[in-house]
């Protein structure tokens, strides 16, 4: 049941010199939504307006059914916000800090302490939470920032570049956590990034803005076409020096359409792409490869990367 969480209608924000948002119309439902755009595309301006902290020049916006122009405090009571930059005082412990922020959101003292303990555990902060935050790693700081956005159990969290500055492993952890915010906690998420790729497996829906205007808005299943494309790689043999070529001929002879994988990329010509049409296709490939006497190195389902979709669109 898709519920509208964020709604904007020809929302514009003009500063004396730049237009940060240009007639942006969005209808974002519950779930995890990625907001993608280059630096300066208007992501932060949009978040400010959605929190009711900056007036729009034109147009209107609603968050959780509340008008951003007139019901800012009510919105901010039900929304959590994780800023992009550092925002943690170093000489305070995570527990002390998150309890304080919970109380700033209106939680009574006992509830603030309980929710803080719960939330810090959920974001993966354990014994460290009693130490001053000055000594934390970037990953731990990001977790505390996330915890303070979640501690009052909001209906929606706005996460501004949560993976910034994280190493690949930390990035994956953070993305998994974001996924869980919706799947386990039932909280809708708007997450911004200037990296298209990392939102692919995290988001249900991706909105791309550029120069303050909407470039594209669709669900990630549209983007990545969930119909399984199979990638197949085989070994060469003495009999068939070009294993892929041989497999391709054999499959085409049986009426299966194939294409080269990774055109223009390293490994091109080593991988064959084809559309799986039920289990029969898998069996056919297995039998064909075996029949040719080749080794099957891999056969995997491949989703298109969002970035590939955009690369095609740009052309």
């Amino acid at each position: 049941m898709p519920v509208t969480v964020i709604l904007t209608e020809s929302l514009s924000k003009r500063f004396p010199r730049v237009t940060a948002l240009d007639r942006l119309t969005l209808d974002i439902g519950s779930g995890v939504t990625g907001l993608v755009g280059a630096n300066g595309a208007g992501k932060s301006t949009l978040i400010k307006i959605l929190l009711g902290l900056a007036p729009a020049s034109e147009g209107r916006a609603e968050v959780l059914g509340l008008d951003v122009g007139t019901e800012g405090p009510a919105i901010r009571a039900r929304v959590g916000y994780m800023p992009e930059h550092d925002c943690l005082p170093p000489d305070v412990s995570a527990t002390e800090f998150v309890v304080h922020m919970a109380r700033m959101s209106g939680l009574p003292p006992t509830a603030a302490r309980e929710r803080t303990a719960d939330t810090l555990r959920h974001v993966g902060l354990y014994e460290e939470r009693y130490r001053p935050m000055g000594g934390y790693s970037t990953g731990m700081k990001q977790r505390v920032k996330l915890a303070q956005a979640l501690v009052h159990d909001p209906d929606l969290v706005l996460l501004d570049e949560p993976t910034n500055g994280l190493d690949p492993a930390g990035r994956d952890d953070m993305l998994d956590l974001i996924r869980r915010i919706h799947s386990d906690f039932g909280i809708s998420v708007l997450v911004t990034s200037h990296l298209l790729g990392e939102l692919e497996r995290t988001c249900d829906h991706v909105v791309v803005i550029d120069g303050g205007a909407l470039l594209r808005s669709s669900s990630t299943t549209d983007f990545t076409r969930s119909t399984a494309t199979l990638a197949v790689e085989v070994t060469d043999s003495d009999e068939h020096p070009d294993g892929i070529g041989a497999l391709r001929e054999a499959l085409e002879a049986r009426g299966v359409r194939t294409e080269d994988g990774g055109a223009g990329l390293p490994g091109a010509g080593r991988i064959l792409l084809l559309t799986a049409d039920g289990d029969a296709t898998y069996d056919l490939i297995r039998d064909t490869v075996a029949g040719l006497g080749l080794g099957l190195v891999r056969m995997e389902q491949r989703r298109h990367h969002i970035s590939e979709v955009f690369r095609h669109d740009d052309r």
């Binding site: 929190l51 902290l53 916000y81 550092d86 925002c87 922020m101």
Partner: peptide, 17 residues
């Protein structure tokens, strides 16, 4: 301290004014 460590946004993204 709130200005230096940029904690202000965390306050103002909450209901207080």
């Amino acid at each position: 301290l709130d200005l230096r460590y940029r904690t202000m946004p965390l306050y103002f993204s909450r209901p207080i004014e």
